[in-house]
Amino acid sequence: MKIKLCQGGLLVILSLSAAVSLSAARPSASDFDAANQACAVQKYDEAIRLYEHLLQNGSLSASVYYNLGNAYYLHGEVGKAVLGYQRALLLEPNAADVAANLAALRQAQGLPEPAVAWWQRPLLVFGRDTWAWLGGAALLLAMLAVFLRGAWLNFGDAEKCPHRWFHGAVTVSGLALALSIGGALAQGERADRQVVMTNDAPLKVSPFADAGDLASLREGELVKPLKRHNDFVFVKNTAGQKGWVAREKLAPVVL
């Protein structure tokens, strides 16, 4: 009986792994190399076109977004550069080169660094998907432990049931699950941000074109969308100012 249960659990895990591997598409290395070549000889228009072509064909990777961000920045398009870096960080939260270039861009442009709470810092070590996978695995382990213990007590020798092992597995899994939920929420907040794509985008009092301006947002600045009204988004910028911005002036990190 126990062997059958273990086999069932393994089957679930293998199925999830297979789903992950199936979701990945085949990279097109030659296009990527050609884009890099164009960027190296300072043909940024060509490089951007090739990188965008890769992305449109479903070859999404942190490397493509990072290189695209570099090309945009060297081409003078700060907003699109920040967007590329942010998307790269979404896929590889610990990518040091992406973080360094994004910091250099912000420093050069005088853009504010988004504040990160102290408790969020350790949770940003992994990406949202990693946290999701960890949480799913923790949930599976906890539920499997509960199921196996119940089966053992009912159909096995209850006197020999390793209660401590089962309790330990459930406790560890529960902690991992709570951590994963926190990590996914912290990363989700980062992914939900939007990038200002034009310079001096007006932050308006109300969601109308002729409404008064509260302040102006700078290209490449990150804002947090709070709500929407027609073609305007109510956002909060890194300085804590809130107001309405035309949707066309923003680009979401995750569509």
Binding site: A62, N67, L105
Partner: peptide, 29 residues
């Protein structure tokens, strides 16, 4: 075809490996 004449700071180099590729930016959740 270089963009506006902005003085850019030193940047980390381009990546030569495409790395793990996925078809969608949307999270697995």
């Amino acid at each position: 075809d270089h963009g506006p004449a902005t003085k850019n700071p030193p940047l980390a180099p381009l990546r030569l490996e495409e790395g793990t590729v996925r078809a969608d930016l949307r999270p697995v959740t």
